[in-house]
Simulated assay, not measured.
Amino acid sequence: MDRRQMDRPGVPAPPQTILMDVDTGIDDALALVYLLSRPEVHLQAITCTAGNVGARQVALNNLALLQLCGRPGVEVAIGAEAPLEIPLVTTKETHGPQGIGYAVLPAPARRISPRHAVDVWVEEVRAHPGEITGLVTGPLTNFALALRREPELPRLLKGLVIMGGSFNYQGNTTPTAEWNVSVDPHAAREVFAAYRGLPADKLPLLCALETTERIELLPLHLRRLGEAAGAGPELVLPEQPDGLRSTSASPLVACLSDAIRFYMEFHRLHGQGYVAHMHDAFAACAAVGRTPFTARLATVDVETGSPLLIGTTVADFRGLWGLPPNARIVASNNPEQCFEELISSVGALARRSMSAGPPAPG
């Protein structure tokens, strides 16, 4: 299967409605800013779960990013503060104490929604059956809880895109487990079980490490982002001192640059080079059909009982278990085209933001 919504002169892209569940997170932040940059995308709401940082900090990050991008009216709701059955583990060493690296954003003027994230999922999808695509770039806790409340969510959603898992590929948290799934493996297992036996077009699209780690952001990509924003080349270079702050004339470019510098330093510290894996940004591009990929049907399950292998995702591509498929796993993608999409679209948003001046509070 190959999905790609290409620009055609004079033909507007079809409207897309996204309900986003995040644990923001540097790559979640880029994914959010990207969706805000797309004129055809309507962000129905953002729900927040604990993961990279605590759920309240996730919500504050999202509110601040919405304000920075001139979109403060999007609802932001807090959900699960902890996984279903195991203690919460966060990863501030990867994403920084506030989850957005070195970036420092002012306290947002808008408040967190009084609704719980589970209520948002259930009420919005019931009110708009067949219209909303869910995008989960953090642990699956909120979505699992929403499924307990409304088991018909898989049929009521237009689609679901998940960043998570790794298949025949090293994990990034344990040797076999990917971060989002490892934070709440019981939730992930419930979600995949809920999709078993559904038609192929209703199965979740799973963006796993073997393809998301190909979305490797390099210094040259940040340079091009600054140029696309009309703010001049943005220089984040390995020879510069750690923690150097951006002086970009674009507040949005400066924010992303300061966040991504932290992420690059983390990857270098762990022997992966001066790069940043933008897992969630790929998932966002895929969710709105703006980057090419292929996918394979599979039956997916998650290990929850073994201390050695907890959080490991297992895929049966050949039907050996005798169970119907419950996921479509991305099998190939095009990193170069994905970065063209991200840089051009986010750069255009940053350019518009500079022309409009600072966003109005509230």
Rank of each mutant, 00 (worst) to 15 (best):
D280N: 15
R126L: 12
Y102P: 03
F339Q: 07
A103E: 07
F266L: 03
P151L: 09
L156S: 06
Q57F: 04
A187D: 07
Q44H: 13
W179H: 09
A193Y: 02
G243T: 12
V41N: 01
A55H: 06
A107L: 12
E303W: 11
P185H: 07
R110W: 02
V302Q: 02
C285R: 02
E234F: 01
E210G: 10
L198H: 07
A64E: 00
A187I: 09
Y34V: 07
R3P: 00
D119G: 09
A77C: 10
G232L: 14
T173Q: 11
I112A: 04
R126S: 10
P9F: 15
I310P: 01
V346E: 00
Y34F: 15
I46N: 01
V125Q: 03
R3W: 06
L30M: 10
T133I: 15
F143M: 08
L217R: 01
C255A: 15
S332G: 13
C69Q: 00
T299A: 13
M1F: 08
G54D: 10
R148T: 14
C338K: 02
G226R: 06
R296M: 04
E178G: 06
R8S: 05
K202M: 11
E150F: 09
D184A: 14
P129Q: 10
G197C: 08
I132N: 09
V41H: 00
A194F: 03
N52F: 15
A284D: 05
G138Y: 06
P83C: 06
R126Q: 14
E234A: 14
N334P: 02
I86Y: 05
R261V: 07
A356H: 05
G138R: 06
L225V: 14
K158E: 03
P83W: 05
V161W: 01
P359A: 14
H42Y: 06
R351D: 02
P151F: 14
V191W: 02
A13H: 14
I100A: 01
E190H: 04
L153M: 10
T173P: 00
G51C: 07
R111W: 01
F282N: 04
R196Y: 13
D28N: 15
L157R: 04
H221K: 13
G230N: 09
Y34A: 12
I26C: 08
R148K: 15
H116M: 03
L65C: 07
F167C: 01
P359V: 13
G73Y: 06
E340P: 06
R261E: 02
L68K: 03
D21Y: 04
P233K: 14
P87F: 13
G362I: 11
V314Y: 00
R328K: 11
E150K: 04
V136R: 02
R155V: 10
T17I: 05
T94Q: 12
R268K: 11
